[in-house]
Computed example of a mutant assay.
Amino acid sequence: MTDRTVSLDALADLPASGATSRWVSGEVGLHVLDYAGPADATTAPIVLVPGISMPAMGMDFVARELARTRRVLVTDVRGRGLSQSGDDYSMPAYAQDLERVITALVPAGDAVLVGHSMGARIVTLVAARGEVEHAGVVAIDPPISGPGRDPYPTTREAFMGQVEQALRGTTADEVAASWPTWPRREQEIRARWLGSCAPEAIGATHDGFESEDFFEWWPQVPAPVAFIQGADSPVVPTAAMDEVTTINPHASVHVVPAAGHMVFWDNAEGAAQVLSDALDAVGAD
């Protein structure tokens, strides 16, 4: 199992976020950032699940905006951030982890599950499994690659190269070479936190993007459910949207303008508005 690195500089980001660290025990110990939101909040809480190489802290700017009106919990998926590594990085293992988080931290069953990229696959499978109660699902630009489909547009080698660079020690300038349009703060946070991702977790998850089919789970997701696409996303091309809407007619569909796959990093204001619309569509605003 490869070593993972979390520097003191990275840990110093945690108190600045204003979130509280929560811990969920089990076969793999899980870390969750809990943004309390207003004491008098009446809107549904959100459980936010990041993408393949995104620790919870990487979505701090998204969570903070949402926490203006509600409680927000952001998960460190196993093998990332401060969550423990595991032996299994399949989508069912991720789904079981999220079910543990929901049961432990939002037992009322009133949370909306919001996932981006890999996280969108995870919340979709949790909803399809029906093992825990929740108030709705928002899937944001999930990988629709899989058997017999076009491959995931970012190669396994590209992901592994970025993580290996981070384990050696990377900088915001090096991150900018891969993500030149990101805000500088987000480049800096990625430079500090990417080394917390286990290479085997990234590699196995990317393999799953090719071997596990999102469209096996998507039709089983009950209402209320929403699907968000980045207008220029290569991960969910416009040609695939007919299948998205046909096999789950319950879903409302929303598009973030001027954004690729990394919708919040490409167009933070536009993505926030579209997510608000999607939450309204699932009855969570």
Rank of each mutant, 00 (worst) to 15 (best):
P180H: 03
A104N: 13
V263M: 09
A56K: 09
S178N: 13
I102Y: 03
A177T: 15
V221C: 02
Q220G: 09
A127D: 03
E269A: 13
V255K: 01
E188P: 04
V236H: 02
V282N: 06
G81C: 08
A93F: 05
H261L: 04
T238R: 14
R149W: 06
I202G: 08
D266H: 14
P50W: 11
P257M: 05
H206C: 01
G146L: 12
V235W: 00
G169A: 08
E216C: 09
E131Q: 13
A201H: 11
R192M: 11
A226V: 10
M160H: 05
D60G: 03
G119R: 04
D280Q: 14
Q187R: 15
T5N: 15
L113G: 08
V77Y: 11
T42K: 15
G148D: 10
E133H: 14
M160P: 01
G283Q: 02
T155I: 02
V24H: 09
I228D: 02
G86F: 10
E200F: 10
D232S: 15
Q187N: 11
V106D: 09
G195H: 13
A198I: 02
E65H: 10
A251P: 08
Q165A: 06
V49F: 06
P249R: 03
R185Q: 14
F215T: 08
A104G: 13
I202M: 12
Q273Y: 04
L98S: 04
H116A: 06
V137G: 03
S25Q: 15
H134E: 13
E131M: 12
A231I: 01
H31P: 07
T2G: 06
Q273K: 13
V126A: 05
P219T: 07
T171V: 04
V236F: 00
P219Y: 03
F227D: 03
A111H: 10
L33V: 07
G81V: 11
I189C: 04
R100P: 06
M1S: 13
A135S: 12
E131L: 13
I202H: 05
E27P: 09
